[in-house]
């Protein structure tokens, strides 16, 4: 059986979801954003909720997420996505409302908005991309930047005395009564991406149960900002980011002990 025969007679077992538009993504080669966008799109497609989904994009590289996912989008000011999502969901409780935010957006300028959305128990989904750097502005230090990590504003490596410590968001908001599901995932390998997709699906499902906010952190790479090849960046992430930001569920209020 030739390759052409397989294509002709075989089943399509994987293809680009129609929930993604045909626009070529502006992201750098190997950027995790594209993979996460795709997983969200696949979840929306599989759940059949395209017309019931309202997405909110942040400021940062993923501001243009609205060019790639075929759902209605609101573009928020830097850090304010959870405030938009709060009103969008409260005024349209039947909709699935999610924000897509980077670490600069969510963990720095938008800490008040995310913490209070969590605390109020808004029935929304938050996708949090943690790559430890500001991508769009040219690779400056983010609140989640690791100690010793070199960025444009920590050229000699992040120093706790000078720059403070990395901010670990997920366990912090897990303490808030308004959160239902908090998990940390990655998309660098196929098994990891499949798990991340399952987590995103769970978050979307939870958001309609009226039990509070669901939060999916994706530990991600910014290979341009980190100045590495995509494959090397994935390896660096496993070796350096995962010890500080370990993968796995942090909170699940519906999980039976």
């Amino acid at each position: 059986m030739t390759i052409e025969d397989i294509k002709k007679h075989g089943d399509i077992v994987y293809r680009k979801t129609p929930l993604l538009t045909d626009t070529v993504m502006h992201y750098c080669p190997g950027c995790s954003h594209g993979t996460v966008h795709k997983l969200i799109a696949e979840v929306i497609e599989e759940m059949g909720i395209q017309q019931d989904t309202i997405a909110i994009s942040p400021v940062g590289c993923s501001v243009f997420a609205y060019n790639y996912l075929n759902v209605d989008w609101e573009q928020a000011a830097h850090g304010r996505a959870p405030a938009l999502a709060t009103a969008t969901k409260r005024l349209n409780p039947e909709k699935y409302v999610f924000t897509y935010q980077g670490d600069g957006d969510l963990a720095s300028i938008g800490t008040a908005e995310i913490i209070h959305a969590c605390s109020r128990g808004e029935n929304i989904v938050v996708i949090f991309i943690n790559n430890g750097i500001y991508g769009m502005t040219g690779g400056q230090m983010a609140p989640t930047t690791l100690l010793g990590m070199k960025t444009a504003t920590t050229p000699y490596g992040r120093d706790a005395k000078l720059n403070g410590f990395p901010l670990v968001i997920a366990p912090m908001i897990a303490q808030l009564d308004g959160t239902a599901y908090i998990t940390r995932q990655a998309v660098h390998t196929a098994p990891a991406a499949r798990k991340a997709k399952a987590a995103i699906r769970k978050a979307f499902e939870y958001s309609q149960k009226g039990i509070g906010l669901s939060f999916v952190e994706i530990v991600a790479t910014c290979n341009s900002g980190w100045k590495m090849s995509p494959v090397a960046a994935n390896k660096w992430m496993v070796e350096n980011m995962f010890p500080k930001y370990p993968l796995g569920d942090i909170k699940d209020v519906l999980k039976k002990e």
Partner: peptide, 22 residues
């Protein structure tokens, strides 16, 4: 073997995977 690993990790969603049982 049509495992789709390449497809799911592709950030630009440019891979279509076909598979046949043999």
């Amino acid at each position: 073997v049509g495992c789709s690993n390449c497809g799911i990790v592709c950030p630009d969603s440019v891979i279509t995977v076909y598979r046949v049982k043999i």
